[in-house]
Design a protein around this nucleic acid. Sequence first.
DNA 1: CTCAAAAATAAACCTAAGTTATCGCAAGGT
DNA 2: ACCTTGCGATAACTTAGGTTTATTTTTGAG
Lengths: 251, 251
Amino acid sequence: MQDVSSHMVRRLQRFVSLTNAELALLADMERDSRAVSAGDWLWQEGDAADTLLVLTEGWSCSARYLPDGSRQLLEIFLPGDILGIGELADGKRRSDVSMLTDGRISEYAYPRLRELFERAERLRSALFVIANQRQAMLAERLVSVARRNARQRLAHFLCECRARLLEPASARQRFLLPLSQQDLADALGMSTVHISRTFSSLACLGLVRRRHYHILILDPARLERLAGFNGAYLQCDPQLLAPEPPAAEIQ
Amino acid sequence: MQDVSSHMVRRLQRFVSLTNAELALLADMERDSRAVSAGDWLWQEGDAADTLLVLTEGWSCSARYLPDGSRQLLEIFLPGDILGIGELADGKRRSDVSMLTDGRISEYAYPRLRELFERAERLRSALFVIANQRQAMLAERLVSVARRNARQRLAHFLCECRARLLEPASARQRFLLPLSQQDLADALGMSTVHISRTFSSLACLGLVRRRHYHILILDPARLERLAGFNGAYLQCDPQLLAPEPPAAEIQ
DNA sequence: CTCAAAAATAAACCTAAGTTATCGCAAGGT
DNA sequence: ACCTTGCGATAACTTAGGTTTATTTTTGAG
């Protein structure tokens, strides 16, 4: 189990433990990455989709743009996240994806993927699990936007970000959230003005502070209670499709 | 291509053409179904999940219940839909699913599934495609709830239902929508009162009429324009993960 | 260090949709 | 024929959050 520092590997190992062979494949997968800048498009709606993409460093997001000029952020991607899983199914990108920060990405084209999947069934299963978790996050955001008020909505989003970070729980009280109030508004279905108001109100309650893209969570427990946050949808224990490797080495 | 009448087969064949061997497997899958009544729970959040479930007849929906007593409908399932795909990944049901109408379901337990997947790779791919399409529908609903006003939201939902029906386009002008205004409100993040108002307003515009759970779409084109509906997310052409069978045997 | 551009805050005002309450109607049971 | 029950419509009133405009604050380029 070398290369512990890779975001992606750490992220995958939340779901499946990996054999050395699989780790080697993954290391290979990340080897030639390229730098990208904040604002760069990774792809746009309708593009042909025959690659997976690993966000080696940096944050990005997917969005839908509406005819009236507004946009809806659908997913936020953190370092180590794998992008474009679902799109493998139908060969077309279904939303625009752009970088929120500078970062690095490495791309994995389809022939290499076929090979990867054939050599590592459990990685394929891991992708299934990840796709599944993404769906759960989307459902949770739908619940937020449809049923929670502005304060709960923002609080819930902050709890989710906190829970998704790879840092140990103790280090998650204070973190970088590289989304402008405009981005947050577009993610949560609110106006920038109301995001600002709502941050003020959360600060008033002594729950959260935000300065220069840095979030400080003052009272995580109370924040989760206010938000109605239950992190269960972010966990998973994938016993069914991904049996543990018998012993020493595998398939 | 026997058993054309099966909802599920017709639904799957929107994505992949099936060999006789696969059709036989599916027929087997639906053979022993059991009747269920409107309101019955198919499962609840937290239940162990080691089965797939085919909705042979009838409509159902998945929902999240919130501490304040309100609920959010997440997905609407139509006859032929396969339920519980994502849950295979982590072995726990993540939302409550109940029947909207009387119907029939047939269950497929895990050992049989393993067998199914091993014998029919393209069916496994089809499941991936379906899971993917579900995610697209969820994303679209998030956009609806976050960005569209009540009229567009309801219009969009009706367009989506219309598009999902198996009937040929010509027969979709008038259809049964077995959701009460309460259900619609819970699905679209509105109040029942406002659902009522909004139906009135759509009727006023000469677009839609609803009586006793029956929808009549008077002007589909104008309705789609009003809703900003683009059905692309419901199609898909799954070339990547599901290569066509060699030759002779196709459908 | 300066200045322009971008981002955040603040205040005043507005509106879409929620809430509450009442009434009508159709379907089923007795 | 009568009552009950559930669903839908309508009206009056309230409110959360949007919009607009103006005023800071921060950032970043030179």
